[in-house]
Design a protein around this nucleic acid. Structure first.
Lengths: 142, 142
DNA sequence: TATTGTTATACTCTATAACTATA
DNA sequence: TATAGTTATAGAGTATAACAATA
């Protein structure tokens, strides 16, 4: 792949990601959670309680920023803080009953625009897309 | 693919995109252009002068927002406004000499973190990644 | 009447800095 | 001294609303 072609493809990827983020933001604006909020909710659902520092590391954000995200979810009564049993510095963040219920209803994979649109792709397109998310995750760590 | 697996994969993709955007922002903060600014510069370089409305449509943004982006590039003396010859409403945005020079130097595909990291992938990983950017572009239009 | 662009204002997301408390 | 978290402040990126000029 020539340097020129590589650069064009990188710009295409960058543009695609920008388009996606703006689209998701526009959809979320009406009622749903932001991208980060959704991901954090899913993580808490899948892996159980976590500290703000853990969540921040997982999402590549500063702890202060994750604190803001958690405060927003707390405001919506979707998560709650619980002091760590032995380490007095840490707060465990966990889903509330309302948060669990929300996860259940979004878990039917019908609610969000993105899940819908991806469900309509061919199996091979989905495979490509999800393989790409692993590649991206590795890229980010470099 | 089960609805549950689909949802997990969609969340993984969402997280990957979030990680990428934050990483690109962190890199750009130091010295380089933002994602949108880079894409606009590449577009002007590749396709010649365009109006703010055209650029906004291409990037899925509001014209007012693109106006801000263009103003930032203008401030850096990378683009200039030129009145449209016949339509008095339109302004053509074009690269300045400095903008062209910047495109040339980034055109060697060595400068940015992302281009570097992607260059280090295997050919098949690159193929997957770039196929995914087309899929994303189609998703966004739905 | 529709389109292009501008200006003013505000919101979302995330960062930096400074601090407290605990380990 | 290092880590977890909070509070305060600021910046980037984008949106909405209201407007002027031109088509």
């Amino acid at each position: 792949m020539s340097p020129k072609d590589l650069e064009i493809a990188v710009i295409d990827l960058t543009q695609a990601i920008g388009l996606m983020v703006r689209r998701m933001r526009a959809v979320a604006a009406s009622q749903e959670l932001s991208m980060t909020e959704s991901v954090v909710m899913a993580r808490l659902d899948k892996e159980g309680p976590a500290t703000i520092a853990d969540l921040a590391r997982a999402e590549g954000m500063k702890p202060q920023s994750m604190g803001t995200t958690i405060a927003a979810l707390e405001e919506m009564d979707l998560v709650a803080r619980k002091p760590h049993p032995t380490d007095g510095r840490q707060m465990h963040i966990e889903l509330t009953d309302k948060g669990i219920a929300l996860r259940k209803t979004t878990g039917d994979a019908k609610r969000t625009w993105l899940t819908q649109a991806i469900a309509e792709l061919s199996e091979s397109e989905r495979k490509t897309l999800f393989a790409a998310s692993d590649i991206i995750r590795r890229l980010v760590e470099k």
